[in-house]
Design a protein around this nucleic acid. Structure first.
Lengths: 190, 190
DNA sequence: GCAATCCTTCACCGATCGGTATACATTGGC
DNA sequence: GCCAATGTATACCGATCGGTGAAGGATTGC
């Protein structure tokens, strides 16, 4: 699927509606009729642009992934130091409005798409693999000890923060603090 | 819903089938007709025993919750030391067959049940609250410094391990090691 | 012997599911 | 002036969704 700017106006509106509905209500629970109605578009147009519901799901996840990666990279580049850059993904989380308490769209997608062949599943898994690799690269840049091991630990904490978000008391603050202390420790150890 | 032993044979079979299907395929994606067929029971009986699909969902989560809490408490009681007891929930994870890579049933349920009023959502949130409280109690028993803060960190790591399980490379080993080192550190600090 | 509980069979309900067919209007580029 | 792309409207498809009504066959305990 092409990126948002090169999409036709109708397709763009469909994608906007799909993102909001899929995220807030769940992918399986939302029907294509509802997405079409919300975006003010005929079902025919929806199918002409996205081919199938699975195609729309993949576009939804791709769009979210693309936007999120851009935010993370911006946060990385605007970090004060290489050490701060390592925990940039956590500051991105803190900067977002996550009051919906719907957690991570990709974790949710993995929960709803158990089929290994589903295109959306691949996108969600790639997102997580990308973050793990990013943590490792940033840890290397910050001259931390054992970058891959540190990356896995940061990944655990990051995903833990997202997974506990739907709970009444989110743990993002604790996650950020713990992540920073692990980075500090690994930097000293090197 | 009554516990498994006091249930009628048909109801028990329905619950077994529901547990397997809801967990492996997702709650929303599985219809009541399929659950009835798999359990060799009429849809009528299913509805006589569980009232509605939501009732069956609640029974599914309750049953899983009950079984899991029992396993955790057994692991806690058979721990060699109070310090080991704190990380007992991690050893429970390691002892289970989690090769399905379907992650945590409760995290998945929260992803699929966005409605705050859904009975299943309450059960899933209570499960997480119970674990957080258990971590804090065990940390107190092990004379760790700042039990509530340690509990939140352990919670993050625990949920992170579950959330990353659907990924190709699970992080349970790293999670257990990190949890143990945090407990060690907090025990020394006290 | 009687009643209650459990479970069955089977037919049925309106609504919604993902997806398609046909036909027509608008728009911009060549 | 024309063609292709884009979008509209409407009607339709078989399948499945969660859920119910009505009637009857077992088993159990009093």
């Amino acid at each position: 699927m092409r990126s948002t700017e090169t999409m036709s106006p109708a397709a763009s509106r469909v994608l906007d509606a799909a993102e909001e509905l899929f995220y807030s209500r769940g992918i399986t629970a939302v029907g294509v009729d509802l997405v079409a109605e919300r975006s003010g578009v005929t079902k025919r147009t929806l199918y002409n642009r996205f081919g199938s519901k699975d195609g729309l799901i993949a576009a939804y996840l791709s769009s979210r992934d693309e936007r999120w990666r851009a935010e993370v990279m911006t946060a990385v580049e605007s970090s004060g130091s290489p050490a701060d850059a390592v925990t940039a993904p956590f500051t991105v989380l803190a900067s977002q409005d996550r009051s919906s308490a719907r957690g991570c769209a990709f974790i949710n997608a993995l929960a709803e798409l158990p089929d290994a062949d589903h295109p959306g599943r691949r996108i969600a898994m790639d997102e997580k693999a990308w973050l793990l690799d990013l943590f490792a690269r940033l840890a290397t840049d910050a001259r931390c000890a054992e970058p891959p091991a540190l990356a896995r630990r940061l990944m655990l904490i990051h995903e833990g923060a997202l997974a506990t978000e739907p709970l009444s008391r989110g743990l993002l603050t604790d996650a950020t603090e713990l992540a920073r202390s692990l980075v500090r420790e690994a930097a000293q150890r090197a």
